[in-house]
Design a protein around this nucleic acid. Structure first.
Length: 433
DNA sequence: CTAAATGATTAGTT
DNA sequence: AACTAATCATTTAG
């Protein structure tokens, strides 16, 4: 509405009050032009010209009446042709051959984007395709379907608004164009209006409307961009992993504390178990490592918890394995070398130091099972032995394979470096709590 | 409401 | 290419 009014204003010289065209009574012309011939002619013409010149000053009804009068004047055709001739020679022809619409690059850009986002293109398919593309670009393949549908719903909303608005504009444009054309056609009986002029006027109207459409497109693009960024930037709308997932991850982390770098396969498996993506697993481990290292003290409790948990699990598994190996042939690898330990009854443990101190983590001979048991138990022991307590004020990286460099593990250095101040003998059970 | 926890991103390193 | 460290933006706990 507002836009229409604005456009109407900006199209100069076109009277828009066509609604009341029929309102006026056909008043008699100022002169009885049928009666007086001959002498009054010159004065007549002057009179007519005067009327023409002042026609815009008059009220609509009045003007309408006079126009009608002039239309019926017998001199009208001659006058009209003269006016046409004059007009031809003056201004308007110059402006006729002027602007051809150059394809606005920005408009093209907007159109392309809207098409790509599925706002402008085909009804349903485009939208979901764009949404899928967005989801794929964000990294997660088939993850959050809730947010995905949310995205699609919002996009559909935008598309709907866009289309209704566009339609509205189109309709208004057409309506207005036909209106103006009718008006001009009607006026062309009174004043000289070339088809070119009408064309030009239509062009102006269309340009005006298309500029409004461009605003609409721009706004739509902005909305889509905001929506998209909101969904693409996963930092927004972050969801914490499920309790179970963090449990699994923590279990793995603390049971591989000496080397918490899961292989690609391990990551995949963890991802599967936690129903998250592999990169999320990587993220998690990256964060965990750095945060653990940064403040080991803060994670003591958690470490104990998970270490104990995995220790129990491992013990169970080991017990089962021992039973198996006792019953079966002793082909189980490593079962005798370092994996033997007694499981804690009430928190106390007694372990042989060789099995814990030997730095065989990098060694390929050690099976993963035993490895994790060793890690876990090492951890438990070091915890309960009160190795590095953050309360001590000086966070020492004396634990595990975390070296002073900040690196997690130095493969070349044997484990004797691990705890220079504390001998292996300090490891013993201690239920200090 | 504030602060801690947390998942994700980014720049820089190896 | 994977990792670290710093940082962001959000969620959750206090």
């Amino acid at each position: 509405m507002d836009d229409q009014a604005r456009i109407m204003q900006s199209i100069g010289g076109v009277s828009l009050a066509g609604h009341s065209v029929q309102g006026g009574m056909a008043l008699p012309p100022p002169h009885g032009h049928d009666g007086t011939d001959g002498d009054g002619r010159k004065q007549d013409i002057g009179d007519i010209l005067h009327q023409i010149m002042t026609i815009t000053d008059q009220s609509l009804d009045e003007a309408q009446a006079k126009k009608h009068g002039l239309n019926c004047h017998r001199m009208k055709p001659a006058l009209f042709s003269v006016l046409c001739e004059i007009k031809e020679k003056t201004g308007l022809s110059i402006r006729g051959a002027q602007e051809e619409d150059p394809p606005d690059p920005q408009l093209m850009r907007l159109d392309n984007m809207l098409l790509a986002e599925g706002v402008a293109g085909p009804e349903k398919g485009g939208g979901s395709a764009a949404a899928a593309a967005a989801a794929a670009a964000s990294g997660g393949a088939a993850d959050n379907s809730i947010e995905h549908s949310d995205y699609r719903a919002k996009l559909t909303q935008i598309r709907q608004i866009y289309h209704t608005e566009l339609e509205k504009y189109e309709q208004a444009c057409n309506e207005f164009t036909t209106h103006v054309m009718n008006l001009l056609r009607e006026q062309s009986r009174t004043r000289p209006i070339s088809p070119k002029e009408i064309e030009r006027m239509v062009g102006i109207i269309h340009r005006k409307f298309s500029s409004i459409q461009m605003q609409l497109k721009q706004s739509t693009c902005e909305a889509v961009m905001i929506l998209r960024s909101r969904f693409l930037d996963a930092r927004r709308k972050r969801r914490n992993f499920s309790k179970q997932a963090t449990e699994i991850l923590n279990e793995y982390f603390y049971s591989h504390l000496s080397n918490p770098y899961p292989s690609e396969e391990a990551k995949e498996e963890l991802a599967k178990k936690c129903s998250i993506t592999v990169s999320q697993v990587s993220n998690w481990f990256g964060n965990k490592r750095i945060r653990y290292k940064k403040n080991i003290g803060k994670f003591q409790e958690e470490a104990n918890l998970y270490a104990a948990k995995t220790a129990v699990n491992a013990a169970h598994a080991a017990a089962a394995a021992v039973q198996n190996s006792q019953a079966n042939s002793p082909t189980t690898p490593n079962s005798g070398s370092s994996g033997s330990f007694s499981l804690p009854n009430s928190g106390d443990m007694f372990l042989s130091m060789q099995s814990l101190n030997g730095d065989s983590y990098q060694g390929a001979q050690v099976g993963a099972n035993v490895q994790s048991q060793v890690d876990t138990l090492r951890h438990v022991i070091s915890q309960t032995a009160g190795y590095n307590d953050a309360l001590g004020g000086n966070p020492m990286y004396s634990q595990h394979n975390l070296n002073a460099n900040g690196g997690w593990q130095d493969a070349t250095t044997p484990s004797s470096v691990i705890s220079p101040t504390e001998g292996p003998g300090s490891v013993h059970s201690d239920t200090s709590n």
